[in-house]
Design a protein around this nucleic acid. Structure first.
Lengths: 233, 233
DNA sequence: GATAGCTGCTTGTCCGACAAACAGACAAGA
DNA sequence: TCTTGTCTGTTTGTCGGACAAGCAGCTATC
């Protein structure tokens, strides 16, 4: 009877959990390089392959930066982009059908309305998004427009002052982005649609500038709803 | 010049993405076993280690069931538990993101109020949580009470019908759970506090039973707020 | 002092190996 | 014939070794 570990999780996942805990509790502080794979393997008493699998898991959770961007030979720094990972995971759940799109949209409306209600002044970053969008409308550049659109909403969400709110809205946007782009792609008369969207964004900012947060909240709800339920007039 | 792939992502991540796409587009239907690791390695033209790393990534995304439960030698079936993976990712992001507790609580109040406003009938599961809580009050059993408390709110959140709402509330609860338990631990007169919390939960259910969703929503907001800001009378 | 080359380390990938667990076949006994 | 025990093959989980490529730091040369 050599061993008899408590449960039956593979070593690699166990290591992943321990590494995750070590990162979260600050043993490996943020923006710091982790030890070498070989060092980790030795300190955990496992083989390098096992460590690599564990690192992949952490990477998928966004806790360590690594190969998803450049993957050069530089070791690896610690957590960042966890929000992106969460967005991806949420969007996966969405695609697989675990969560209906309509529910996500409803949630987004609720959150954005609340964030805007709490917003008193419009940050410059939001205004510059409007400028970018306007330029994109000229060129009928869907992708630029969409990027600015996303930025607009996220910036506005954070402007409300509640970081949790801003964060979740950002994740939701990441998650819905695919659908949005597809929808824009499928639209025949893009110029008109983009112009209308731009006008709606502008109206929201105008309402906020006028100090009418509640009206801005209504506008944003309508803005989101209309886009996802174009059939309802 | 043997190859020159577009960017510099490691093979394993590339394989992971292709596998992910294959799963999402139905090449590997749900509840089906994937091919053997060796077969996958051959069909992708890579080594088994590479496939294993890719599989870990998919597993972290919740797209394939594998070792997180039993990890027995049975091959592996496909997607499920993507929501759980998304929850973990979101909660990780929230922890790492150093989001103030107050913001999390505010978000939770907003979401729970909305969920309750949308709730018409109280599910039996929620009522049984009340029973469990009552028993826990008798024994001053903090942990059981807390578990039932969490279950109560999550069940109620899903009762509103919006799965995304329930989902996010569950994640938020996970994030806040640590704080909550600590707070309960620090309380001197636990019996009184638990009894009061139980009464508040009961009042929420009563309001819902009476068809007064709005009042129930107010009660839940007060319930959450009072717990986190005990100084404000 | 500046630059070019060398050396070592680290990652990404592959391969071969082995124990353990499981599935199916196959043979022995009731 | 049916049951049961064994045996073999397959598959996962893990390890170790191997090698190419990129990068850092040092050294030697101009």
């Amino acid at each position: 009877m050599t061993i008899s570990p408590v449960s039956r999780v593979p070593l690699s996942l166990d290591v992943a959990q321990r590494l995750r805990a070590a990162i979260l509790d600050g043993t490996f502080p943020a923006e710091t390089e982790l030890p070498t794979e070989t060092e980790l393997a030795q300190s955990f008493g496992v083989g390098r392959s096992t460590i690599r699998e564990a690192l992949r898991v952490l990477q998928a959770h966004g806790l360590i930066s690594g190969a998803d961007t450049v993957s050069t030979a530089r070791p690896r720094v610690t957590h960042d982009r966890t929000a992106g990972a969460a967005g991806l995971a949420l969007s996966t759940a969405l695609q697989v059908g675990a969560i209906p799109l309509g529910d996500l949209v409803a949630l987004r409306m609720l959150l954005e309305a609340e964030a805007i209600r709490k917003t008193t002044s419009v940050p410059d970053a939001v205004r510059s998004c409007l400028v970018t969008m306007a330029a994109a409308v000229e060129n009928t550049d869907i992708h630029t427009f969409h990027a600015a659109d996303v930025d607009f909403h996220v910036q506005l969400a954070y402007a409300g002052g509640n970081q949790a709110l801003g964060f979740v809205i950002g994740v939701l946007r990441d998650c819905i982005a695919g659908y949005l782009l597809d929808a824009l792609d499928a639209v025949a008369d893009r110029g008109t649609v983009l112009a209308r969207l731009l006008a709606e964004h502008q109206a929201i900012v105008d309402a906020l500038d006028a100090g009418e947060s509640d009206r801005a909240a209504e506008l944003v709800v309508a803005h989101v709803r209309d886009f996802y339920e174009p059939e309802t007039p």
